[in-house]
């Protein structure tokens, strides 16, 4: 009996050790990310609307020259607080291809709110050609598509530091503390005051990185807040249901045990 319990504890300990070793081995291969506090990460987490609106500006003025956002529609911007008129105006600033017209020709027209974000390049080959062979990835899902999520994105943007002594960085690449292998093709995109925030928030690199990460967290997971809200209701409901079910079970089994 004792032996059995001992081996059972061994099994449990083994499982926990497995998890820890797994994460340790994983971390050893990857760079330790500067962990941030994100408003949306907790159980009742929500997005920061202000930060996301500023982050959209950062995207539009800095990132959009190379990175697409093709899974997001202009109308979605109303979710982060822009009015319908503002969104129409934003959309109208982009041209989308439409057609064919009655002559069979394709033509360009201003985007409507129903259209999705126009990518800076028509296809990947054009993107590579303009960027020395490197492909700037679409950012719609970036926060979910990388281990570390928002910490990774923030880390990249704030990770352009001087390389350690002796570290070779070939021409055309830049040292980045967070990017795998530390050599990234993207030049540092953020400089202090690169974007003029209309609400007067000082546009430091850290601030812009924070804001654009909040924005990209939303583009990757637009329904997070609804999910959290529903989750709280569902869990509370299930707690009540399970408690009732337990009471029923005990009642039903009362005579048997």
């Amino acid at each position: 009996m004792m032996r059995a319990r001992w081996t059972k504890s061994l099994g449990v300990a083994g499982f926990v050790a497995t998890l820890l070793a797994g994460s340790a081995a994983y971390a050893a291969e990857h760079v330790a990310l500067p962990e941030q506090e994100w408003s949306f990460n907790s159980l009742f987490g929500t997005y920061e609307r202000d930060a996301q609106q500023r982050g959209f500006l950062v995207y539009k003025d800095v990132c959009a020259s190379c990175h697409g956002l093709r899974l997001v529609a202009y109308r979605n911007l109303m979710d982060i607080g822009f009015t319908e008129d503002e969104v129409k105006a934003i959309a109208a600033g982009y041209l989308v291809q439409d057609g064919p017209d009655d002559n069979g020709d394709m033509y360009e027209r201003p985007a409507t709110t129903a259209d999705r974000f126009v990518s800076p390049f028509p296809n990947d080959a054009a993107a590579r050609a303009s960027n020395g062979g490197a492909l700037p990835p679409d950012l719609s899902l970036m926060v979910k598509a990388r281990a570390g999520g928002p910490d990774y994105v923030y880390g990249i943007l704030t990770g352009y530091v001087d390389p350690p002594a002796g570290f070779e960085v070939p021409d055309g690449l830049y040292y980045n503390a967070v990017f795998p292998a530390h050599r990234i093709a993207m030049p540092p995109p953020l400089f202090d005051d690169a974007v003029a925030y209309p609400d007067g928030t000082p546009a430091t690199v850290g601030q812009m990185a924070h804001d654009v990460t909040q924005f990209l967290a939303w583009t990757a997971e637009p329904h997070l807040e609804a999910r959290h809200r529903m989750g709280v209701k569902v869990l509370l409901f299930l707690l009540v249901l399970t408690a009732l079910a337990y009471a029923v079970k005990r009642k039903v089994w009362a005579g048997v045990h």
Binding site: F237, V240, L241, L244, A245, A247, V248, K251
Partner: peptide
């Protein structure tokens, strides 16, 4: 007892 069963059934049905 019946109330308990009824309540549990009703909550389940709502779910």
């Amino acid at each position: 007892r019946d109330f308990l069963f009824l309540a549990t059934g009703a909550v389940g049905a709502i779910g």
